[in-house]
C-alpha cells in the first residue's frame, strides 16, 4: 500500500509540475490543482497508513477500558488536510478568476500576458 500511495503522489507531482511549466493559464491552473492534491495526499499519508484503524475517540475508550494501546488513525493530519483543502479550494477559485480576468484584459491566455514573438 505504501508503494501505491507513494507512486500515486509522485505521478501527481510530476504531472502537476509538467502542466505548471506550460505557457497557457489553463494547463497551469490544472497543474496547480494536481500539485495541491498531491500535497494534501502527502500530508494525509504522514499520519502513517493503517488499515482498519479506529478513529481516535474509540481508541481512547479502548485504552481507558483495557489499558492496551492498539493502532488507530491519526486524526491530526486529517484535520490539517481539511484545512489545506479549503485553502487550496479558495486559492484555485482566485487563480481561475484571475486567469479569466487576464484573458479579458490582455486578450491572450499566455502566462506572460503577451504572445511570444516568434
Amino acid at each position: 500500500m505504501e508503494a501505491l500511495v507513494a507512486s500515486a503522489i509522485g505521478v501527481m507531482v510530476a504531472s502537476g509540475v509538467y502542466l505548471l511549466l506550460r505557457a497557457r493559464t489553463y494547463p497551469v491552473v490544472l497543474g496547480l490543482t494536481l500539485l495541491s492534491y498531491a500535497a494534501n495526499l502527502f500530508v494525509f499519508s504522514m499520519g502513517r497508513l493503517t488499515l482498519d484503524g479506529p478513529p481516535v475517540g474509540k481508541a481512547i475508550k479502548k485504552v481507558a477500558k483495557t489499558g492496551e494501546v492498539a493502532p488507530f488513525a491519526d486524526p491530526l493530519p486529517q484535520a490539517l488536510v481539511l484545512t489545506a483543502i479549503v485553502i487550496s479550494f479558495g486559492m484555485t477559485a482566485f487563480i481561475v478568476a484571475l486567469a479569466v480576468k487576464s484573458m479579458a484584459t490582455l486578450e491572450t491566455d499566455h502566462v506572460d500576458g503577451e504572445e511570444p514573438s516568434s
Binding site: A38, A39, F44, M46, M91
Partner: peptide
C-alpha cells in the same frame, strides 16, 4: 501557490 504546496508538503514531512 507552488510555494504554498511545497510548504504544506514540508509541514507534512516534519510532522511525520
Amino acid at each position: 501557490l507552488v510555494g504554498s504546496a511545497f510548504f504544506l508538503m514540508t509541514i507534512g514531512l516534519l510532522y511525520g
